[in-house]
Computed example of a mutant assay.
Amino acid sequence: MFNASEMPPKTTIQPVLEALASANTLPQIPIITSVTCCFVLAVLYVGSLYVWSTKHNRDHPSTIKRRFASVSVVMLFSPFFVWYFSSPELLSEESFAKLLGFRWHGLWQAVVIPYGLTMLLFMGPIFVNCQNESIGSYFDLDYWRGCLHNIIWVRNHVMAPLSEEFVFRACMMPLILQSFTPMTAVFITPLFFGVAHLHHIAERLSLGVELSTALLIGLFQFIYTTLFGFYSAFLFARTGHIVAPFLVHAFCNHMGLPDLQDLWQQELWRRVLAIVLYIVGLAGWILLLPLATNPSLYGNTLYWNV
Rank of each mutant, 00 (worst) to 15 (best):
L44N: 06
L44I: 06
L44A: 07
Y45L: 01
Y45S: 00
Y45G: 00
V46S: 01
V46N: 00
G47E: 01
G47W: 01
S48D: 02
L49T: 01
Y50G: 01
Y50D: 00
Y50Q: 04
Y50K: 00
Y50L: 03
V51A: 01
W52D: 03
W52Y: 05
W52A: 07
S53P: 04
K55I: 04
H56L: 03
H56C: 00
N57P: 05
N57R: 05
R58G: 03
R58Y: 04
R58P: 02
R58N: 04
D59V: 01
H60M: 03
H60T: 07
P61L: 06
S62Y: 04
S62M: 13
T63N: 05
I64A: 00
K65D: 01
K65T: 02
R66S: 10
R66V: 10
R66Q: 11
F68N: 03
F68W: 12
A69Y: 08
A69R: 10
A69Q: 05
S70W: 02
S70L: 06
V71A: 09
S72G: 11
V73K: 12
V74Q: 04
L76D: 14
L76V: 15
F77I: 15
S78V: 08
P79W: 10
P79N: 10
F80N: 08
F80Y: 14
F81E: 04
W83N: 10
Y84H: 12
Y84R: 15
F85K: 09
S86Y: 03
S87H: 05
P88H: 10
P88W: 06
P88E: 09
L90A: 05
L90W: 06
L91N: 02
S92P: 06
S92N: 15
E93S: 06
E93R: 07
E94W: 04
E94K: 10
A97R: 04
A97G: 02
K98Y: 12
L99W: 01
L99N: 00
L100R: 09
L100W: 08
G101H: 06
G101C: 05
G101V: 02
F102G: 00
F102T: 00
F102I: 05
R103N: 07
W104T: 14
W104L: 14
H105C: 04
H105A: 12
H105G: 12
H105F: 08
G106K: 01
G106C: 04
L107K: 07
L107F: 14
L107C: 10
W108S: 14
W108R: 13
W108T: 14
Q109F: 14
Q109H: 14
A110C: 14
V111N: 08
V112F: 15
V112I: 15
V112H: 13
I113C: 02
P114Y: 10
P114G: 08
Y115Q: 08
Y115N: 08
Y115T: 15
G116W: 11
G116M: 13
G116K: 09
G116D: 10
L117I: 12
L117V: 13
L117M: 13
T118E: 09
T118C: 09
T118N: 09
M119T: 13
M119K: 11
M119L: 15
L120A: 12
L120C: 11
F122R: 11
M123C: 14
P125H: 13
P125Y: 10
I126T: 14
I126E: 13
I126D: 11
V128T: 04
V128W: 02
V128C: 08
N129H: 15
N129A: 12
C130G: 15
Q131E: 15
Q131W: 11
Q131V: 14
N132C: 01
N132S: 11
E133P: 11
E133H: 13
S134F: 07
S134T: 13
